[in-house]
């Protein structure tokens, strides 16, 4: 069997799901027997390549995220919505109750840690979208792993099933757990 390729990315998330991915510990060796991780923010920063499986953490909260997820959907055979922010918006989407300008004002102008009290005019700062969306509101999603973060066991179960050409069914491991 030809080795599969895995790509991972985080959008509007906290990277906690990736930390949980690393928590699969020595089982990572079993994953690496069946697949190469060709792209991940914990590896490098190149453009998202063509992959068999894409694990996407985080919600779509800016124009950059939107471009990225559309790009990933075009490049990946299987897109997995990875963690609560990707699945339901979760903490990332709590700003949906506020206007974008209010969010920026609280984060920069009123922020205790920001001495300049100004919103920086820098290209690195994402152009926040009016509303934060879970991934499936923007692109088609093949599988969902809810959880904040999903447990390492859940992540390994789903990866192992996908890498062995089986369909993961979360009911087998007790059902999908949000939060």
């Amino acid at each position: 069997m030809k080795k599969k390729t895995i790509g991972t990315v985080w959008l509007a998330g906290c990277s906690g799901c990736h930390m949980s991915l690393l928590d699969i510990d020595e089982r990572m060796l079993e994953v690496l027997k069946l697949a190469d991780i060709v792209k991940s923010p914990i590896v490098d920063g190149k453009e998202f390549p063509e992959v068999d499986i894409a694990l996407v953490e985080g919600a779509v909260g800016s124009e950059e995220h939107l471009d990225e997820i559309l790009h990933i959907r075009a490049k990946a055979k299987i897109v997995v919505s990875f963690g609560d922010c990707a699945v339901s918006g979760n903490v990332s989407s709590m700003r949906n109750y506020l206007k974008t300008q209010e969010v920026l004002a609280r984060s920069y102008e009123e922020a205790e840690s920001n001495d300049s009290k100004q919103i920086p005019n820098a290209a690195e700062i994402l152009s926040l979208s009016h509303r934060v969306h879970p991934l499936h509101e923007v692109v088609d999603i093949d599988y969902y792993i809810p959880g904040c973060p999903p447990s390492a066991d859940t992540i390994f179960y789903v990866l192992n099933e996908l890498l062995n050409d089986r369909v993961p069914d979360l009911a087998v491991i007790g059902g999908p757990k949000h939060g």
């Binding site: 979360l170 999908p176 949000h178």
Partner: peptide
């Protein structure tokens, strides 16, 4: 959600 299988 766990019981009835709501994953999203």
């Amino acid at each position: 959600a766990k019981k009835v299988g709501v994953d999203h």
